[in-house]
Amino acid sequence: MKNKFFLNIIKILFFSAIAALLFNTFNENGIPVLGEEKTYPTYESGSGSVENLPPRQVTLSQAFEMFESGEATMIDARDNWDFADGHIANAINIPEFSFNPKDGKVSALDKERTYIIYCGSDDCDISKRLADQLYKLGFSNILFFEEGFEGWMNSGFPIKLGDGNVE
């Protein structure tokens, strides 16, 4: 009885999966069965903010240049306690985990301005996720850099160390 029970379950699941995969093949909204990491274009200086471009990747030195010239504002996508430990000088903290478009911090941003988003280090992806979210809200100049706060700090670029107290 028990064996038959699980055998039936396997049959039902197998049949459903076959039907699903067949349908997906012929569905015009079908998606690839194996997901892939999303890729982003790289930033070319001078491409301007005229068009509504998807998030682009900048190098650490490009990010620093734009930071120093005041051309871009940095956005820290990490949690507020990470931010409170230390962050890029003058960065705004918008934790991606609890991202809410109606939040005051988000609505205070200027959609035309250039923002550079970062997170912890090169193995986090919340900067990209936040970039996608802001792009969806109509921000036209969203950039991010892969190296994150760790890479920034290791290059000796200006940071602000905090006392760890969450505001």
Partner: peptide, 17 residues
């Protein structure tokens, strides 16, 4: 990320069937 699409494809079918 590799498994997300697979489950997105089959879960609705399992639910319906």
């Amino acid at each position: 990320i590799e498994l997300v699409n697979f489950f997105a494809i089959i879960i609705p079918w399992i639910e319906i069937i």
